[in-house]
């Protein structure tokens, strides 16, 4: 094999290894950051980092879990960067409105309006939580991660995760009751 053939081989090997995990990683990036530009930055940064560690990746039994942990650590290490990062590449049409209206859902207009109102209220309530509480409740209640999986991802003791989960739910319930979302 000549050296000029190495990059495509490496690229193919990389894609083969990470592509099955992209959906889950993209969702995780969204849950961690809460906004598209930051989620895309985090997702992109993870892939760049993973490409540089392709040899390690090839030896790992569960690359999906490993990639998730790397993403979480990247987020924690560079939280300031990803929380406040405001630069992103301009694509045509990107300046048009972006938000929950563009998200997948059923097409019933009446049902959708109620759903959108409730989701907007939830989104506002989530923004009042600390990152620590918001992330735990979203991973557990929205993404369906088990406590053990959150422990493996974050390294937090299960007791701490349970406590954060409880506090986050209580706070969300209080905010949503005060806002009239829950009658």
């Amino acid at each position: 094999m000549t050296s000029k053939h190495r990059p495509p081989d490496r690229q193919l090997a990389f894609e083969r290894m990470v592509r099955p995990h992209l959906d889950r990683l993209y969702r995780l990036a969204w849950r961690l950051t809460g906004r598209r530009p930051e989620a895309e930055d985090l997702f992109q940064e993870l892939l760049i980092k993973a490409y540089g560690k392709l040899d390690d990746l090839a030896r790992i039994d569960e690359p999906g879990s490993w990639l998730s942990r790397v993403m979480y650590n990247l987020f924690v290490d560079e939280r300031r960067r990803f929380a406040r990062r405001r630069l992103h590449t301009v694509h045509d049409g990107e300046l048009a409105g972006e938000g929950i209206e563009g998200m997948p859902g059923n097409d019933n207009p009446v049902g959708n309006n109620e759903r959108l109102d409730a989701i907007r209220a939830l989104e506002a309530a989530l923004s009042e939580l600390s990152d620590e509480h918001r992330i735990v409740v979203l991973l557990h209640d929205s993404e369906g991660y088990k406590l053990k999986e959150i422990h493996e991802l974050t390294g937090l003791p299960v007791g701490t995760i349970k406590s954060r989960l409880h506090r986050a739910r209580t706070r969300l319930r209080d905010i949503l009751t005060q806002s009239g979302t829950f009658p």
């Binding site: 592509r19 895309e40 760049i48 490409y51 929205s142």
Partner: peptide
């Protein structure tokens, strides 16, 4: 609350976005 959280959506990424992200990763990673 549980139902609302379970229903709280994440936008789906397109295959084109993934392709672009992978291409950037290999380019930038290299």
């Amino acid at each position: 609350l549980q139902a609302l959280l379970k229903d709280y959506p994440v936008p789906e990424a397109s295959e084109a976005f993934y392709d672009q992200a992978l291409a950037r990763a290999t380019h930038e990673g290299s």
